[in-house]
Design a protein around this nucleic acid. Sequence first.
DNA 1: ATGTCCATGTAACGGGTTACATGATTGC
DNA 2: GCAATCATGTAACCCGTTACATGGACAT
Lengths: 183, 183
Amino acid sequence: MSLKHTLLGFLNLNSMTGYELKKHMDKSTQFFWHAQLSQIYPTLKKLEQNGLVTIEIEPQDGKPDKKIYTITKKGNDKLLAWLIKPIVQLTPTKDFILLKLFFSGSLDKEIILQHLQNVLALQRQRLKQYQTHTKSYVEQIISETGLQTEGIMWGSVRQFGEEYTQMYITWLEYTIKTVKETL
Amino acid sequence: MSLKHTLLGFLNLNSMTGYELKKHMDKSTQFFWHAQLSQIYPTLKKLEQNGLVTIEIEPQDGKPDKKIYTITKKGNDKLLAWLIKPIVQLTPTKDFILLKLFFSGSLDKEIILQHLQNVLALQRQRLKQYQTHTKSYVEQIISETGLQTEGIMWGSVRQFGEEYTQMYITWLEYTIKTVKETL
DNA sequence: ATGTCCATGTAACGGGTTACATGATTGC
DNA sequence: GCAATCATGTAACCCGTTACATGGACAT
């Protein structure tokens, strides 16, 4: 389960609440690792039970008390052990869009084109997001924290997202042309 | 659950056993939808209970009897309904490799490079597979079944896999260079 | 008034992996 | 002799989603 590692990874940079962790994920890891709050809260609880993080409660009124999580030595060890562990296989992917297209050969040409156009619009939207919000978020965090080395990896991973999306768009445009001409 | 759709998709082209379905998946949908036999068998059972497929038993000796699954009218309707349903959002992805790299900024330069080199080797291997086995599998199925229209979509999806892998490799090579020079 | 932000969760369910179980045949 | 292929499955467990629950502050 890599949500645990994601949470430890962020807590290793800064102590924060579950709510804040979710915000950071939405802005950065979103496109290669996401989670709902309803999964984050119980997971943090488990991390605490295993002694990987500690909780500090900050009372608030009008809202539930804040629970600020801090990584422990044990948590840091666990994170490092995972980070160092060699990568021996690629991530198995699941993509229901490619699956649907794969089986769509017998459909009406117009429906296939509609599918492709929909995905194209969504990917173009995402590309913009990488080039604007995600980019400025990465830059902001680097300047705020002064984490230069981390910055290189964050920048690289963001770059991956942008190039992947760009490749997807190019493929879609080509495939739309192919379907129009040959089906 | 899209495994149901995958199974219906293949059964729509040809009646076959769970074991054979797994083989087809391993050769074609593998890189965007995979499953273990231990998931396929119970899923087929559920499909049968819902009247989406029928079973024909072919006795064998020395081996368990073959169970040949055939799609029903109801199953075909269900498949079509799914295929026609508009795509309104991108597939949320999870990639533990990008996640690990994202948090690897503070690691030893040598370890990061080792990770990147490992992934590079794996992706180069996969690229070859797309260009050889997957390509010839697609061509073989098209010529065997004479499914020209399906062939266009299969070819396109395979092409996606090849281009994705190529993009990944290019990104890795660039990132390796960056890490070497700047970290 | 309506919606979004803050801030926490629980419960039920479904999807998916890993381990276990059986056993003959074929190829190295 | 050992591994792979054929051919079926069950059981336990973990991961993740969806729906439900609470409730004040602030903006439109």
